[in-house]
Design a binder for these strands. Structure first.
Length: 432
RNA sequence: GUCCCCAUCGUCUAGCCUGGCCUAGGACAAGAGCUUUUCAAGCUCUCGACACCGGUUCAAAUCCGGUUGGGGACGCCA
């Protein structure tokens, strides 16, 4: 039975690197019909916070990873103590007294060669003479990371330890502990790290790294998962966009690369756009409504969902993030728009009173107010006035949307409706 | 400083294990064009890499050694 675990410490948010480790563990469990275990490493009582724990579990859930079992190290202190005392009795550990009189339990590291087999990297050899004796139980009675980790992985019957590259140097220390405690050594797989754009670890300075931040920025979990997955694994056949169910069939931990990858937001944006394009507008609406309410674009008791759905369809293909929707589509929800100053100067600087009022009149006369008929009436007007269509299209767009870019003008007019279109046009007509 | 890991376009990668099919394939980004009503999307094209040196071999991106470069770890943090 394959049993893997993700072991975050609730001393910070779930970040990109942690999410990727969780993904590969979860995916491997699904691919091999095993179990995925969540272990909360909250031995540091001072730095562990409930809010971080909540953020981590919420983010994992949002990404779609569910766990079969959950454990908290803070509830297992007696087990660690017991195992440390066993080593003490056998003579492989000793007690060290501090000047204050407190006692710590230290593991004796004997000089020897330690071989670690890694599913991704092959065999790695370490010389134990370069490793110091290891603290097992700190003088405050709590276990150290390496010790609790070994006791837990062994007692939880973890078959494969899949974790970040940064743990490679912990591995020989842990192997020694497995052997001293008489536990079977699990398989190891060390995942390459994800680096920031300037090289080095992904940090707050390199941009947002918390998964909850990506959620707030309007990324879809499927897109983020797909991107993370492709960061050090490839399904082959030049495939990039891959549904998770398909990935489960193809994934194997041995196929993961050894090389550290640089996080690239541009590519993430592309993935997000790919998923946004084919997403169910209904689902996007569900995500968008709370944000639109919060920012005052919608009123709680007055939501026209069918209308919102149409507007979403209009923008879906041009969004990189869900949040882009608000900046592109705001004019559909605002009572009054303020045109971008540059756009106004460029397209509404000259007097178009005659053209705008004529067009407003023509729109009044359109019988079946639909997109083709709006276009026909516009084209006829252009012909009569003898001007180029773009001479009028761009100014009208700015008058209606406040922007120089957006969906096709006739769609905009249709969804804005006769009334609002007229109002916004006439605002630029000088009364003589 | 010591130990460990890694090395294909700017970025993510395919190929490497099982040398020849590689004048190295795809994607993102960038640039150009088509379309056009602007921005996206879509389509077409362009730019662009086997870090270096040596060895093995008829043949090396692929195997071996070294150099260089990058990253990580050396806590009574996890």
């Amino acid at each position: 039975m394959i049993r893997v675990r993700f072991a975050p410490s609730p001393t910070g948010n779930l970040h990109i690197g942690g999410a990727r480790t969780a993904l590969f563990n979860w995916l491997y469990a699904l691919a091999k019909n095993g179990k995925f275990i969540l272990r909360i490493e909250d031995t540091d009582q001072l730095r562990s916070k409930k809010e971080f724990l909540d953020e981590i579990t919420n983010s994992l859930g949002w990404l779609g990873f569910s766990w079969d079992e959950i454990y908290y190290q803070s509830q297992r202190f007696s087990l660690y103590k017991e195992q440390a005392e066993k080593l003490l009795k056998e003579g492989s550990a000793y007690i060290e007294k501090s000047p204050q009189g407190t006692e710590a339990i230290i593991f004796k590291v004997k000089p020897q060669k330690i071989k670690v087999r890694d599913l991704i990297r092959g065999e790695i050899e370490f010389d134990a003479s370069t490793i110091k004796d290891q603290v097992l139980i700190k003088s405050d009675g709590t276990p150290t990371y390496n010790f609790a980790c070994v006791v837990d992985d062994a007692t939880m019957s973890i078959s494969h330890v899949i974790r970040g590259d940064d743990h490679i140097s912990n591995t020989p220390k842990q192997v020694l502990l497995y052997e001293a405690l008489g536990f079977k050594v699990p398989e190891f797989a060390h995942l390459p790290l994800i680096l920031g754009a300037e090289g080095g670890r992904l940090s707050k300075r390199t941009g947002a790294t918390a998964i909850s931040d990506y959620r707030k920025m309007g990324y879809l979990p499927q897109a983020l998962v797909n991107y993370l997955l492709l960061l050090s694994w490839a399904p082959g056949e030049n495939r990039e966009v891959i549904e998770i169910n398909e990935a489960i069939k193809l994934f194997d931990i041995q196929d993961v690369n050894k090389t550290a990858a640089t996080f690239d937001q541009d590519k993430l944006n592309w993935f997000n756009n790919q998923y946004l394009k084919k997403a169910d507008p209904q689902k996007l609406a569900d995500e968008l409504i709370p944000i639109l309410l919060e920012q005052g674009y919608l009123e709680k008791d007055n939501i026209d969902k069918a209308y919102l759905l149409e507007i979403i369809k209009l923008f879906q293909a041009r969004l990189n993030t869900l949040n882009d929707f608000i900046s592109w589509a705001d004019f559909f929800f605002l009572k009054e728009i303020t045109p971008d100053p540059q756009a106004q100067a460029k397209f509404l600087g000259t007097d178009l009173s005659k053209e705008f009022s004529l067009f407003a009149e023509r729109l009044e006369e359109v019988k079946d107010f639909d997109i083709p008929n709006i276009e026909i009436s516009f084209r006829e007007l252009i012909k009569e006035l003898g001007i180029e269509s773009k001479k009028l299209i761009h100014p009208i767009r700015v008058a209606l949307t406040g922007k120089t870019i957006g969906p096709g003008l006739f769609e905009v007019i249709y969804y804005l409706g006769k009334e609002r279109t007229r109002e916004r046009l006439l605002k630029w007509v000088k009364k003589s």
